[in-house]
Computed example of a mutant assay.
Amino acid sequence: MIDKTIKYLGYFTAFVVALLVLLVVYDATVRYLFSGGSVALQELEWHLFDIVILFGIVYALRESAHVRVDIFYASFSQKTQALINIIASLLFVLPFSFLIIYIGVDFVSMSYLQNEASSNPGGLEYRFLVKSLMPLSFAFLSLQAIRDAKTNFDAWRSL
């Protein structure tokens, strides 16, 4: 269930990247060829970029495409690699994710209660919506880290 959810989250993120590219091309064309533009569109670009980053990290963890010191990791045995992955998931990813979720919920709540909107004229309203992506993405990241820890533990035991 977690694996499928994260896979579709990755597909959604890829769709958002395509949408972001189209939006940036449109915005640049309107700005430079027609001397127009929209603050709301520029802010929407940043919000879409937030989606790409926050959900992209979850998909990167699922696909083992995240940054690590592969120069050392690649030379380790599969059992050692599995142990490193377990330690990384349980001691680094999970605590950091739980911290971001804990802080993020208050961050989103405050934004919602204040009815936070852009300070720019013509900017987007309901800023709490984009801020809510932060704890949500780290909840997904936590689930993926738990899944990775379990998968690597099973692999470590069988090796």
Rank of each mutant, 00 (worst) to 15 (best):
S38L: 03
S38F: 03
S38K: 07
V39Q: 05
A40N: 07
A40Q: 08
A40S: 08
L41F: 10
L41I: 15
L41Q: 01
E43M: 04
E43A: 01
E43K: 08
L44P: 00
E45R: 10
E45M: 12
W46I: 14
W46A: 10
H47S: 02
H47E: 03
H47C: 06
H47W: 09
H47R: 09
L48N: 04
I51F: 13
I51Q: 00
I51S: 01
V52P: 04
V52S: 04
V52F: 09
I53K: 00
I53S: 02
L54T: 05
L54N: 01
L54G: 01
F55S: 01
G56P: 02
G56C: 10
G56M: 04
G56L: 12
G56R: 01
I57N: 08
I57W: 03
V58D: 06
V58I: 06
V58N: 07
V58S: 04
A60S: 11
A60Q: 02
L61S: 11
L61I: 06
R62F: 02
R62W: 05
R62Y: 09
E63R: 11
S64E: 14
S64H: 09
A65L: 09
A65C: 04
A65I: 04
V67M: 07
R68M: 05
V69S: 06
V69R: 05
V69E: 03
D70I: 00
D70P: 08
I71G: 05
A74H: 07
S75V: 06
S75F: 07
F76D: 02
F76H: 05
S77D: 08
S77W: 10
Q78N: 12
Q78T: 03
K79D: 04
K79H: 08
K79S: 06
Q81T: 09
Q81A: 12
A82W: 01
A82Y: 03
A82N: 11
A82F: 00
A82I: 01
A82M: 03
L83D: 14
I84R: 04
N85K: 08
N85F: 00
I87G: 13
I87P: 00
A88S: 13
A88F: 04
L91C: 11
F92P: 14
F92Y: 05
F92A: 13
V93W: 03
L94V: 15
L94D: 13
L94W: 09
P95I: 11
F98C: 14
L99Y: 14
I100W: 07
I103V: 14
I103F: 11
G104Q: 10
V105W: 13
V105N: 05
D106I: 05
D106P: 02
F107L: 14
F107G: 12
S109Q: 14
S109G: 07
S109V: 12
M110N: 12
M110F: 12
M110Y: 03
S111P: 01
S111A: 13
Q114Y: 13
E116R: 02
E116V: 07
A117F: 00
S118K: 08
S118N: 03
S119I: 09
S119L: 10
N120T: 01
P121Q: 08
G122E: 03
G122H: 08
L124S: 05
Y126I: 15
R127I: 07
R127H: 06
R127Q: 13
R127M: 11
R127G: 01
F128S: 08
F128V: 03
F128G: 14
V130T: 12
K131H: 10
K131F: 11
S132T: 11
L133M: 14
M134P: 00
P135A: 09
S137V: 09
S137H: 02
S137F: 07
A139L: 15
F140A: 11
